[in-house]
Amino acid sequence: MAYVINDACIDVADKACREECPVDCIYEGDRMLYIHPDECVDCGKCVTACPNGAIASEHKLSGDAERFRDIAVEFFEAFPEAEGGAEDVGAIGSDHPVVAAWPAGGGA
Rank of each mutant, 00 (worst) to 15 (best):
L61C: 05
E66A: 08
E58G: 15
D11C: 14
K60R: 15
A13Q: 14
G63P: 02
E66H: 05
S57Q: 12
D7N: 07
V12Y: 11
I10H: 01
S62L: 11
E39L: 03
C9Y: 04
E20M: 12
D7K: 08
E58W: 08
D7Y: 09
P37C: 03
F68V: 02
D70K: 13
A56D: 10
I26R: 04
C50R: 01
I10A: 01
V4E: 00
D14W: 11
Y34G: 01
L61E: 06
F68N: 00
C17G: 06
A56T: 08
H59F: 12
K15I: 12
C9I: 04
I5W: 01
V41L: 07
I26N: 06
F68G: 00
E39F: 02
K60G: 07
R18P: 05
A8E: 09
H59K: 13
K45I: 00
S57I: 06
D30C: 10
K60W: 11
R31L: 11
A16N: 14
K60V: 06
E19W: 14
E58M: 10
C9S: 09
D64R: 11
I55E: 01
D7E: 14
A13R: 13
A54T: 07
Y3Q: 01
C25R: 06
V41W: 12
P22V: 08
C21G: 07
G53W: 11
G53A: 08
T48V: 10
I55S: 00
C40W: 01
H36V: 03
V23K: 06
S62D: 12
V41I: 15
E20V: 06
P37A: 02
C40P: 00
K15M: 15
R18Y: 03
E19R: 15
N6V: 10
G53P: 03
C50T: 04
A54S: 14
A49K: 04
C17S: 06
Y27M: 08
P51Y: 09
E58F: 06
N52D: 14
C21A: 08
K60I: 03
R18K: 13
I5L: 04
N52A: 12
I55P: 00
I55D: 00
P37F: 03
C21N: 09
G53Q: 08
M32T: 11
L33E: 09
C17P: 03
C9A: 06
F68K: 01
C46Q: 05
A56S: 14
R69N: 12
C46R: 02
D64Y: 03
A13W: 09
P37G: 03
P37H: 04
E28R: 09
I10F: 01
V23C: 05
G29N: 08
E19A: 15
A65C: 01
M32N: 02
H36Y: 06
L61Y: 05
Y34C: 02
R18Q: 15
C50N: 03
P37W: 04
R67G: 02
H36I: 05
D38N: 12
I35A: 00
D38P: 02
P22L: 11
C46T: 03
D70P: 02
N6A: 04
K60P: 00
E58S: 13
A54E: 07
P51W: 09
E19I: 13
A49S: 10
